[in-house]
Design a protein around this nucleic acid. Structure first.
Lengths: 144, 144
DNA sequence: ATAATAAAGGATATTTTTGTCCTTTATTAT
DNA sequence: ATAATAAAGGACAAAAATATCCTTTATTAT
């Protein structure tokens, strides 16, 4: 569904959101450990998120990654779009370069609602919301 | 959504279903041309489908690929399962090794219906059905 | 029997995705 | 100022997915 990169990005953002809430910052090392992801690899991903304004960072001791006050309100759609693009909910299921309402591929109509649903989920789900569910132990990022 | 391999496989099967209906067989070369896919690559895929009984083939002149009488009734689920496995509708959206009703990842519930819908589409869509829509020009595999 | 045809099989190549390592830069605490 | 810390940046490596090529095997028509 999502690329590994995108999976890691979402998981990291949820984790960072929790730390950030308490006004703290967090290092790649800790994030990697807590979301079970390869440290150097997510370092790159976080860099990318920073460059694109989805995340903030500060170098040096007491530095680390953190979220802007408004970032928890950002939607998953923004994250996914940045990393995987929009093909998940806009692309053709059969990979055809031309596939539209006028010129539907054999699976176009079947997947119409699925695409719409995925789009809605991504639009309507916020980082902060996911973090809160995590906090209340309704959901999990790691087996404990 | 699907791997390229799986996209090609589905496209090829739909095309072959049309030829097969008229009792004919078709060569990789023609399939490749008609579904706009790399010839040598889909040759491998078709080989695989044959090995797994989703497709029949005959060597030599007048040979080629064709479908068994019952194959058009086969579901997309069978094809997808063979090639991509079941992760599309069974895997965790965030790539967690443990993610279930008891131990849901932060996106588990959001994607529950989507997973179910995809599963249903794949189960309920048959190769032959897609071929018929193609035949009646309701859908397309290629811009013409 | 022989030549021609088309899939099967195996090896190899390319590209993309995923993952690692090392040096540089910014920031902080002493 | 200096040392320590942590992200940024760039180069590199490994693995997986996608794609190509060449030889072998089966089948058919002559």
């Amino acid at each position: 569904m999502f690329s590994k990169t995108c999976e890691y990005a979402i998981r990291a953002l949820i984790y960072i959101a929790g730390i950030s809430k308490r006004g703290a910052k967090v290092s790649v090392k800790e994030i990697a450990r807590e979301i079970d992801a390869p440290e150097h690899f997510i370092a790159k991903i976080l860099q990318d998120l920073c460059k694109n304004g989805l995340l903030l960072s500060l170098k040096g001791p007491t530095g680390g990654f953190y979220l802007d006050k408004n970032s928890p309100q950002r939607s998953l759609a923004e994250v996914v779009k940045l990393i995987d693009g929009e093909k998940l909910y806009r692309g053709c299921a059969l990979g055809l370069p031309v596939c539209s309402e006028n010129m539907p591929c054999p699976l176009h109509n079947q997947f119409k609602n699925v695409r719409r649903d995925i789009y809605n989920i991504l639009q309507n789900t916020q980082i902060g919301e996911l973090q809160e569910q995590l906090e209340s132990k309704l959901v999990f990022l790691k087996r404990e």
